[in-house]
Write a protein that binds this DNA or RNA. Structure first.
Lengths: 225, 225
DNA sequence: GTAATAGTGTCTGTGAGACACTATGCC
DNA sequence: GGCATAGTGTCTCACAGACACTATTAC
């Protein structure tokens, strides 16, 4: 049996908005020569500390970010004989959405990299740019019929901020009218009563209603396809 | 490290319509005393024969059905320290849709069991009834916005047969009018020109357009929620 | 006041659902 | 012919999208 536990890992694609752009969390690795110098947060299952795979994902991620992400979801498990030269390998891929609050305590070895597909290909080791692509595909799909956008925003945000999430993830966004209608229906958001003041008319600041889980709508936005 | 490869398995929840009811494929195990006597098709990765996890799933399933299923999809990977008394275990769960053609060559140890949740709890060993539930949840959800129903039908089928799939899976179905509008749009189905004759007006027989993959629609049926 | 962004009113389009209707087979 | 199931016509409803409109702030 050439499959051993050294080749089982949980890899996390953590997304975050940095200056309005979608970024991916990466960890520096010892660069030897021309090799790419980054990898995704990843690690082995700790049979003692981890009660479940979700625990493994949370633990790996928190090692770098020092806080619990607002949303994680398993994407897929990949296993094949090609990806690792040592033989059969098994990778459970997660993605995580990190809220873009100001305070952040990243580990020194960690850094946010723009999620641009081409750039990542040159920067990420192993087949990690492919894992990012798969996680991104899922995010791009799910953002269109769920409340996921709010998990990329800070605690308090405006409806325009949601528009910004769509732009960052999909490079296009539904009209504000549609975002408004969708996100203000139900008990999804709570109006904090506070306003975001800028150079123009202030916008209402909302926060997530913690009573409600990530919500699934029953239609896709069409303008984003 | 108490996690070893003996505890990695690929488990398949294969669905099929038997006399209009949703069934799940099970394999007989040596019953010792009062224990349940069935388990899901499952097995280990064969690092030599399997190029990928999908291969493992296909191989395990074909051992029992002797034919390739029309549709498989990975549901989730479960890992925790509770499910197997020997320690940490990892299970990659797939579901498969088997077309309900007449000819079938089941292995002697295999049998179709009604997918009724309560009944399965008493019949399936380990936590397999929970795996069925998770696969069924996915199927119930996805059937509402995809062309999956056709993968549970024989090669030639009528639009009423699709209605029957919804009834079997969800215990309710969209109106025929809606099924018609949805499934006859695009190039999803091909009218074979043949008719299914019964005691009443014959129905047009359709087949799947092999050019088109499993199709995703952009709205859920509402009557099925 | 003007500029700029927030937010509303309302019309159109699409597809699900309701339901009455017609069509075509078996007996 | 009657009956049963197949299939159509068409109205309503819900929600995405388009777009003109009003509202509220900074300056």
């Amino acid at each position: 049996m050439s499959l051993n536990t050294a080749l089982i890992s949980v890899d996390i694609v953590a997304f975050r908005l940095v200056k309005g752009r979608l970024n991916v969390l990466a960890r520096r690795i010892q660069a030897d020569g021309n090799k790419p110098e980054w990898m995704l947060p990843a690690g082995k299952i700790d049979p003692v500390r981890d009660q479940s795979l979700d625990d493994t994902a949370y633990r790996q991620l928190e090692l770098l970010t020092n806080k619990k992400p607002g949303y994680i979801e398993q994407v897929v498990t990949l296993g094949d004989s090609q990806r690792d030269s040592r033989g059969w390998s098994l990778t459970i891929v997660y993605y995580a959405l990190i809220d873009s609050s100001d305070s952040e305590q990243l580990a020194p070895s960690a850094q946010w990299l723009p999620s641009d597909a081409e750039a990542l290909k040159g920067q990420l080791a192993y087949d990690h740019s492919r894992l990012v692509q798969q996680a991104l595909d899922r995010l791009k799909s799910k953002i269109q019929y769920s409340s996921l956008p709010v998990y990329l925003l800070p605690e308090h945000f405006t409806l325009s901020d949601i528009h910004g999430v769509f732009s960052a993830v999909l490079d296009k966004a539904p009209p504000m009218r549609s975002i408004r209608n969708r996100f203000l229906q139900g008990d999804l958001l709570i109006d904090t009563g506070r306003l975001k003041r800028g150079s123009n008319r202030p916008a209402a600041l909302y926060k997530v209603n913690q009573d409600s889980e990530a919500w699934l709508f029953d239609r896709l936005y069409i303008s984003t396809r």
